[in-house]
Design a protein around this nucleic acid. Sequence first.
DNA 1: CAGGACGTTGGCAGCCACTGCCAGGTTGGC
DNA 2: GCCAACCTGGCAGTGGCTGCCAACGTCCTG
Lengths: 201, 201
Amino acid sequence: MAQGEQGKGASTPTLWDRTRQLAAHEILETALRLFTQQGYDETTIAQIAREAGVSQRTLFRYFGTKEDLIGGSQERFVTLMTDTVREQPADVGAWEALRAAFTTALSLHTSPEQALERFRLVHHTDSLRAAYLGKRVRCQEELLPLLEARPAPSGTGRGQARAIVATAFACFDAATVTWLEADGQGDILALYDQGLAAVRS
Amino acid sequence: MAQGEQGKGASTPTLWDRTRQLAAHEILETALRLFTQQGYDETTIAQIAREAGVSQRTLFRYFGTKEDLIGGSQERFVTLMTDTVREQPADVGAWEALRAAFTTALSLHTSPEQALERFRLVHHTDSLRAAYLGKRVRCQEELLPLLEARPAPSGTGRGQARAIVATAFACFDAATVTWLEADGQGDILALYDQGLAAVRS
DNA sequence: CAGGACGTTGGCAGCCACTGCCAGGTTGGC
DNA sequence: GCCAACCTGGCAGTGGCTGCCAACGTCCTG
C-alpha cells in the first residue's frame, strides 16, 4: 500500500517498493503471456501464480481481480485523460478536448503490435469486454463534469454533455474495432475522425 | 429445451411447458423481489432457490447465470429490435430505423415504475451494468449488417455504420441515465432526441 | 393399461475466483 | 540489537457455476 508514496521525491525507493514493482511486473508479464498463449478463460489464477513464483494470495494482493491483470492499472488511463482535458484552454470545445484525451490515451501504448494483441484479447473475451466497458463508463462519468463547463457547439442545453461524451467514446470504440478487424492497419485516430464525421453528418 | 416449439400452433402446451413457464416465472419474481429488497450482490443463488422452492441446480438450468435473472431473456429484446429494423422500408435511413427499434424496445416495459426500478438496479450494480453493456454490444453487432445497406445521410463511406450504431446506443444510454437521475420524469425517447440533436449539432 | 422412452429434477462433488485470518519471515528506524 | 511496521504464504471458507447420476413424472405406444 506504500507504493503511492514515491511519486514526488523518489528519495526512498526503500527496496520494498523495488521488490513490489518487480513482483508486479513479473506477474503481469506471466499473465499476459499465458492469456495470449491459451486464452483468458483457460488460464487459472493458480497457474499464473505458480509460473510467476508467488502465492495466489499475494497475486490477489497486487491485483484485486483477474481482470485487473489486463487493464494494467486502468487508473492511470483515467487520470491521464482527465488531466489532459483539464489542461485544455477554457475556450476549447468538448469535442476537441475529448479528442485530445484520446490522443493521450493512445500514446500510452508501447507499440502498435502490443496494442493490437491487447485489444484482440479484450474484444474476443466476453467477460473482459464487459469489464472494459464498465470501466469505460466510469471514465465517462469522471470526464462529464469537466466537459459540462465547456462551450457547447451551438448553445445546446445542459445535460447534453452526457450524450456528447458517450458519443465520443462510442466512436472511439467503433474506431478501435474497425482497426482491429483491419489487423492494425491505419490509424485509430483517423478512423475516429471519420466515424465522428459520419455521425455528425 | 422444448419451450421454443409452441410459438406457432399453441396446440400442445403439454403441461410440461406450462410447468416450466410457471417455475421460470416464480424464480424470476422471487429474484427480482430479493434484488430490490436487499441488493443484487447481497442476494445469493441459494436464497433465491430456497424461496422459489427449487434446487440451485434447477435454477441454473432455467437461467444459466445470475445476471440472466435480471435481463429477463435479453434475447427477446434483440430479436424484437432486429425485426423492427428489418420491417422498416428500404429507403428509411439508419438513424430513423434505429429510433424505431428503440421505440419498440421501450414499449416492452409493463410500466414506467417497473422500468425505473429495473434500470436503477442495473445501473447501481457494477457487475450488472457491465453485463448489460456486454449484451448491448452484441445487440449492436447484430444490428450492424442490417444498417449497412441503408442509405447514409450524405453518402459517407462504408464502415461508418458501426460508428452510427454505437452513437445511437450511446445516446440512448445517456438518455436512460438522465431519465434515471430525474427519477423517471419525462420521456426517454424525447431525451434521446435531444441528446442526438446536441451531438449532431 | 402396462411398460418403456424421454424429459425433468435434485443432490453431490468439484472447479474457480476471491476473501479473512493468522503465523512467520523480512525490512526499517531507533 | 530490538521492536514495530510490513509483506508473504497457507488455509479455510464463500459464492457462482458445471458435470454426473439416480429418482421421478410425463408422454407415447402397443
